[in-house]
């Protein structure tokens, strides 16, 4: 049943709360994508500083991205994941690398 668009708009403001039992928040993966311009050193640096991996871990993930197109930098709560994603992109843009980063719901 289609509702009056005004009501829909209202509902989107979620003044009315859908009373479902609250579920514990799911976690998100931060995914880095390969591209032809971002250097491998940069990716490793990002993984080490922002995601605080050890050097070996960082290289392993980098290679995963390099060879398979994308790789998971880490699994976090959404709040943290999105912050890290933002930091990654900001850092990349600072160095003028087109590194792409998204977050994906954990499966």
């Amino acid at each position: 049943m289609s509702q009056d668009p005004k009501i829909e708009e209202f509902q989107q403001d979620s003044l009315i709360d859908e009373r479902e039992k609250p579920v514990p928040p799911k976690r998100y993966n931060v995914v880095l994508y390969n591209d032809d311009y971002t250097t491998t050193e940069f990716v490793v640096m990002v993984l080490e500083t922002i995601f605080r991996h050890s050097n070996e871990e960082a290289i392993r993930i980098m290679l995963q991205i390099h060879h398979h197109g994308m790789g998971i930098a880490g699994l976090f709560a959404k709040e943290i994941a999105e912050t890290k994603m933002f930091e990654t992109i900001r850092l990349a843009r600072q160095f003028e690398y087109p590194l792409q980063c998204t977050i994906k719901l954990e499966e």
Partner: peptide
């Protein structure tokens, strides 16, 4: 905020 543990606790 969605999907935040703090919000989840309050909702609980």
């Amino acid at each position: 905020e969605e999907e935040s543990y703090a919000v989840y606790l309050l909702a609980e």
